[in-house]
Write a protein that binds this DNA or RNA. Structure first.
Length: 494
DNA sequence: TGGAATT
């Protein structure tokens, strides 16, 4: 008990107990007689809108609310005073939260008491300061990205010190101690943090960094939770090449997450997304079969100048964002007959759903509706009307999570058509196997493709087949270069 | 010839 307190440098309780108390502030309050009683308006004290909740630390454990009250009352009327107790044992934790009715009282108490005296039996002075919950520092804490991995805390400090007082500077490191190339910098004030953003964000590119310095406010707790969940959702679509096509579904899932953040994890694992994956996988097999049929008519000749890569012309996927023609090359299913791509596919009797309007009750149908929607309003005026009701604000597409495949499964592709994006690249390599990721590199400044990219399969045989078929493949004036991606450390001498 | 990154 005492020992536990002593290990806390500032006397604040650990986060879990703090937040649990904070999230349920009335639990203790009703028992100590110092809090307002919500049932009786006449006894509710008013408090300033900008009242400060104070954390009081280094309180002897034999003092309860009524003992502490006189000590603090001399600085103003107390709105709420709550000694923190262990959630399970009810044991006094040696600290309290205190809110005065007036902000001014809190400030007076803090300057008069904080570290100014030591209560009987304690060997450290009393702590009186704004509770962590008052300012978690989020509004003055920066996330700094795109640092050089060699840069130290001191380097970062030097970079940021001109804009204000740095309270905290931490390089994020992996388990091995290596910098992750990013950091947190906490200023004393929001204004300082903002000044640093204005001056430094994008201002320079660190040697070895792939793009310019990122300086932004750090994520809030909620944002962090959201990111984790998104990553989780991304993981599930990882080995599923259809994931990219169901971006609209991913976005739908994201919307759900925002509403149901707390339960999303269990929902996802409980099968809400999984049926989708199963559905997509089944679709994939059917489409792969179709593509294979198409292959017989379209020989895989690497230098079959100007022709179409195997499988690409087969009715493939209904969701390529926009038709792209490169000297006759199209990554899209044929639309010459005026039929939209999805119809071309599903006219083959594998339409997963009868033609009917999607109902809100069926997430799979909604997902499928999302696909149609993505195929484009022009192609689906009628369906789009229905979908517009289902998705009043069509959510943005979540980028596919990038993932390196096993050794020998990752391809480097050069001389891509300028217009090619991730989706088109994936399209091109789907016929050779399970594409777990596709990435076209884009110049961050211009947003233009750098005409090279990477494709990762889940097995080396697919990668080899893709190299065989696609290396040297001519598109327009260029021939694709398709080879295994260089291992990370391959270009180092020795 | 990468995919980044939020304690």
């Amino acid at each position: 008990m005492y020992i536990k307190m002593a290990t806390l440098a500032n006397g604040q309780p650990d986060n879990t107990s703090l937040s649990s108390n904070h999230s349920n502030p009335s639990t203790n309050g009703h028992m100590n007689g110092l809090n307002h009683s919500p049932g009786n308006p006449s006894t509710i004290p008013m408090k300033d809108h900008d009242a400060i909740k104070l954390f009081i630390g280094q309180i002897p454990r034999n003092l309860d609310e009524k003992d502490l009250k006189p000590l603090f009352e001399e600085f103003g009327k107390i709105y709420e005073l709550t000694v923190l107790k262990d959630r399970f044992t009810g044991m006094h934790k040696g600290c309290a939260f205190l809110t005065y009715c007036e902000r001014e009282s809190a400030l007076k108490a803090q300057s008069a008491l904080h570290e100014q005296k030591t209560l009987p039996g304690m060997n450290r002075p009393i702590q009186v300061k704004p509770a962590d919950s008052e300012s978690r520092g989020e509004d003055r804490k920066l996330f700094v990205g795109m640092l050089n991995k060699q840069q130290s805390e001191d380097d970062v400090r030097r970079l940021f010190e001109a804009f204000g007082n740095i309270e905290e500077c931490t390089i994020l490191r992996g388990p091995d101690g290596n910098s992750k190339g990013c950091a947190f910098v906490k200023y004393s004030s929001h204004a300082e943090a903002q000044a640093a953003i204005n001056a430094l964000h994008g201002s320079q590119t660190m040697p070895g960094a792939s793009s310019s310095l990122v300086v932004k406010f750090a994520d809030t707790d909620k944002e962090r939770t959201m990111r984790r969940m998104q990553q989780m959702a991304g993981q599930m679509g990882m080995f599923n090449p259809m994931a990219i096509q169901f971006g609209a579904y991913g976005a739908y899932a994201q919307a759900l997450m925002q509403q149901q953040a707390a339960i999303m994890a269990s929902v996802a694992q409980g099968g809400y997304l999984n049926p989708m994956a199963a559905f997509a996988a089944a679709q994939m097999q059917q489409m792969a079969a179709l593509n294979m049929n198409g292959l017989a008519a379209a020989p895989m000749t690497p230098t079959s100048g100007g022709s179409t890569p195997p499988g690409i012309t087969a009715p493939a996927v209904p969701s390529i964002p926009s038709p792209i023609g490169v000297n006759g090359f199209t990554g899209l299913p044929p639309q010459a007959n005026g039929q939209p791509a999805a119809e071309a596919v599903f006219a083959n009797g594998i339409h997963p759903y009868p033609a009917q309007s999607p109902t809100a009750a069926d997430p799979l149908q909604q997902a499928y509706a999302g696909v149609q929607q993505y195929a484009g309003p022009a192609a689906y005026p009628a369906a789009y009307g229905q979908i517009s009701q289902a998705f009043p604000q069509p959510p943005p597409m979540i980028p596919q999570q990038q993932r390196e495949g096993p050794e020998g499964c990752n391809l480097f592709i050069y001389h891509l058509p300028q217009e090619f994006g991730d989706a088109e690249l994936m399209q091109m390599f789907l016929p050779f196997g399970n594409v777990i990721s596709s990435k076209v590199f884009v110049d961050r400044a211009t947003n233009q493709s750098k005409c090279f990219g990477f494709v990762s399969f889940d097995n080396p045989a697919s990668a080899q087949a893709a190299i065989q078929a696609m290396n040297g493949f001519q598109i327009g004036m260029k021939r694709l270069k398709v080879q295994l991606k260089r291992p990370k450390d391959a270009n180092r001498p020795y």
